[in-house]
Computed example of a mutant assay.
Amino acid sequence: MSVFFTVFGVLFSMLTASTWASDNSSSEVSAYVASEDPMADVQQGLERARAQDKLLLVVMGAQWCHDSRGLVEKFSDSRVAELLAANYETVFVDVGYFKDLREISRRFNQAHYFATPTVMIINAETERLINRDDMSIWGAADSVPLERYLEYFEIYAANPSPQYVPLPDAQASVVLSFEQTQSDRLQNAYEHLVPGMQAEDRTGTARKEFLQEWREVWRYRSTLQKDILSLHQQAQEAPDTELVLPEYPSFSWEGDS
C-alpha cells in the first residue's frame, strides 16, 4: 500500500499546470456518467449481483482523474473484462467534483471515498465490503500492472466470503465517531478544492496555491485511510485497550484553529 501511495505522491508533486489541463481535456467516452440517483444505481447493481451469485464491484471515480481513466482502460483488457463479467456486477459512480456521496460508501461501512477511483468489492449476499484492507492500491490505478488486476480480482472471486471479525462493542462506537468526524472534515476539504478545479477547467491553468492545497488534502486522505485500518486492527487485537486516536494538523486555509 505505502509503495503505491509513495509513487503517486512523487508523480503528483511533479505535475505542472499543462499536464493537469491535458488530463482534463480528454475527449474519450467516459464510464463515469452523472446519475440522478447514484445510490439507486448501486442498490440495483447489488440486487443484480445477488440474483446472479456474483460480487458487487462499485467504482467511484471521475473522468478528470488520471487514475480513474486508467482503471477503465485496464478493465477493457479482454482478460480483465472476461474475469469481471463472469464474477462481478460492476457499477461505476461518477463523483464529479467531489460530490458528497458518502451514503454509498457508508452503505457498506466505509467512511468515505478516500481516492479517485475508490474500488469496493461487496459480497452481495452478506452486503459486506470484503476488500477494505487493500483497496487503497486503486488510488494509483493507472500505475497498477495489468497482471495485478487479474490477480487481485481472481483472488476475491475465489474467496467471496473471507473471515469477518466485527469490532468489539466497546471499541466500535469510538471508531465510528472518529470516522464520522474525519469524514466530515474530508468532505469539507473536498468542497474547498472545487472552485480551484472549476477555475482550472475554465482557464487551462492550475494555480500554484491550488496545487499546494490539493497536495495537503491528498496527504490527509491517504493518511486517514491507513489510520482507520490501523484503528480497526488495534481494536480487534486488543479490545480491552483504550484506543489512541490520531490527530491531524490544520489545513493551510484553516489557519491555526
Rank of each mutant, 00 (worst) to 15 (best):
Y190G: 03
Y190Q: 03
E191A: 08
E191D: 04
E191R: 05
H192K: 15
H192F: 08
H192C: 05
L193R: 00
L193C: 05
V194F: 08
V194M: 02
P195S: 07
P195K: 14
P195D: 02
G196C: 08
M197I: 04
M197D: 09
M197N: 11
M197H: 13
M197R: 06
M197W: 07
Q198F: 08
Q198E: 15
Q198W: 08
Q198L: 15
A199M: 13
E200T: 12
D201S: 12
D201W: 06
D201H: 11
R202A: 12
R202D: 04
R202H: 09
T203C: 13
T205M: 12
T205C: 12
T205I: 14
A206N: 07
A206P: 06
A206E: 12
R207L: 13
R207S: 14
K208S: 13
K208Y: 14
E209V: 15
F210W: 15
F210D: 08
L211N: 05
L211E: 04
L211I: 11
L211T: 13
Q212D: 10
Q212S: 13
Q212T: 14
E213W: 02
E213G: 00
E213A: 11
W214S: 10
W214Q: 15
W214G: 02
R215G: 13
R215P: 00
R215F: 12
R215M: 15
E216K: 01
E216D: 01
V217W: 05
V217S: 11
V217I: 10
V217C: 13
W218C: 00
R219G: 06
Y220M: 05
Y220I: 08
Y220Q: 08
Y220N: 10
Y220K: 13
Y220G: 08
Y220T: 05
R221L: 11
R221S: 10
R221N: 09
S222F: 00
S222R: 02
S222M: 05
S222L: 02
T223A: 06
T223M: 04
T223G: 03
T223V: 02
T223Y: 00
T223S: 09
T223C: 00
L224P: 03
L224T: 03
L224Y: 02
Q225S: 01
Q225F: 00
Q225C: 00
K226E: 15
K226H: 09
K226Y: 06
K226D: 15
D227R: 03
D227C: 03
D227Q: 06
D227G: 02
I228E: 09
I228G: 06
